[in-house]
């Protein structure tokens, strides 16, 4: 717990510094905010820890930027074309990641930013996904995302 709080203080202080700049007076508000945020985060999430592979992270960022681009272009094109081509519907995607842990939550959030998919509910063994075009290879795309996230995180100690 103590170690968790320490690193969170460092992390949140860095965020505050980036936002507020180096005006000393900003810390009158910033220091209490950083400390309370660190304590609340440590209490809420506990000591679950995951190491992130740098190589996996780099690969993931490239993939993410590319997919964000495709996602934005895809939905903008559908919105602007006179005949909107939509074949929406739900897909239940079986999770390989452990639904209670951070990588699965990360997965569910990224789903909504990628082309044509939106996470609706994170269940215990699956994610309910809404797809804007059921004829697109939605399942294959989700598998690729899940594989890339699994490659980025290394499971650590903790509850």
């Amino acid at each position: 717990m103590a170690v968790g709080v320490f690193w969170r203080v460092v992390f949140f202080a860095a965020l505050w510094w980036i936002w507020a700049g180096d005006k000393p007076a900003s810390w009158w508000f910033g220091a209490p905010a950083v400390l309370s945020a660190a304590f609340m985060a440590a209490r809420r999430v506990g000591d679950e820890s995951h190491r992130v592979r740098m190589r996996g992270l780099g690969m993931f960022l490239i993939y993410f930027v590319r997919a964000s681009f495709q996602g934005g272009v895809d939905v903008a094109w559908r919105a602007m074309s006179p005949r909107m081509r939509l074949r929406p519907g739900f897909i239940e995607y079986p999770l390989r990641l452990d639904a209670r842990r951070a990588p699965a939550v990360f997965f569910a959030n990224i789903i909504s930013l990628l082309p044509g998919t939106l996470s609706v509910e994170l269940g215990e063994t699956s994610v309910m996904v809404h797809a804007i075009d059921l004829e697109a290879p939605v399942e294959a795309q989700l598998q690729e995302l899940e594989r890339r996230i699994a490659a980025m995180f290394v499971a650590g100690e903790g509850a």
Binding site: S68, D74, V75, S112, L113, L114, L118, H130
Partner: peptide
């Protein structure tokens, strides 16, 4: 929601 999240993320 599709329109909002994806287009705004890219924009």
């Amino acid at each position: 929601l599709h329109a909002l999240t994806k287009a705004d993320n890219l924009g």
